[in-house]
Simulated scan of single mutants.
Amino acid sequence: MPQLYNVTAPRKATNLSLNSDLLAKARDLKVNLSATLEQALNDKLKSIEAEKWKTDNKAAIQVYNEFVQNNGCLGDEYREF
């Protein structure tokens, strides 16, 4: 699956506001905040893109599902399981 963003783009400093207790606990546990936020944002982007794909392809998915319901899956005659 292609990346949703340029992973080689330069890093950019930013300011965030976080719950102070959450931040203190993360720092106490030596959590890498930058890496954690990047992963969380990547996961969020994937989720949003997946929902967008489903919405954009809803009509085609519905037509395909109706076809399968009426005719079975393409290639069913070759299945061995």
Rank of each mutant, 00 (worst) to 15 (best):
F81R: 14
L33V: 12
A59P: 06
L29E: 07
N6E: 13
E51T: 06
D21V: 12
T8M: 01
I61P: 07
N57D: 06
K54T: 00
A35W: 01
S47P: 05
M1V: 10
C73N: 13
N57K: 08
M1E: 09
D56G: 03
C73M: 13
L18D: 00
I61T: 12
L4G: 06
A35S: 10
L37W: 04
E38G: 02
N42Y: 08
R79A: 14
S20R: 13
T36A: 12
T55F: 10
L45K: 00
N57T: 08
L41S: 02
E38R: 11
L22T: 04
E38I: 06
A9Y: 06
K25P: 00
L18P: 03
G75K: 12
A9K: 09
S17L: 09
Q39V: 04
E49A: 15
K30Q: 05
L16R: 14
M1Y: 09
K54V: 01
Y5H: 11
A59I: 08
M1C: 10
K46F: 13
Q39C: 10
K12E: 13
K25V: 04
N57V: 05
T36L: 05
L22A: 09
T55D: 08
Y64W: 08
E38M: 01
S47E: 15
K44P: 00
P10I: 03
P2E: 06
V31N: 01
K30E: 11
Y78K: 15
L37S: 03
N57F: 05
Q62P: 04
R11G: 07
P2G: 11
K58G: 03
S47A: 15
L45H: 00
D56L: 10
A40K: 03
T55V: 11
T8Y: 04
N42M: 01
A26V: 01
C73Q: 11
L29Q: 09
R11M: 11
L41H: 00
N32T: 00
K58E: 11
K25T: 02
E66M: 08
L16P: 10
E80C: 14
N57E: 03
N19S: 05
E66H: 07
N65S: 10
D76P: 13
D28G: 04
P10D: 03
N71M: 05
D43M: 05
L22V: 08
L22H: 01
A59C: 01
Q39R: 10
E38A: 03
A40E: 02
L4D: 02
T36C: 00
D43L: 11
K25Y: 02
P10A: 09
Q39A: 10
A40L: 00
L4P: 04
N57G: 02
N70H: 10
K30H: 11
Y78M: 13
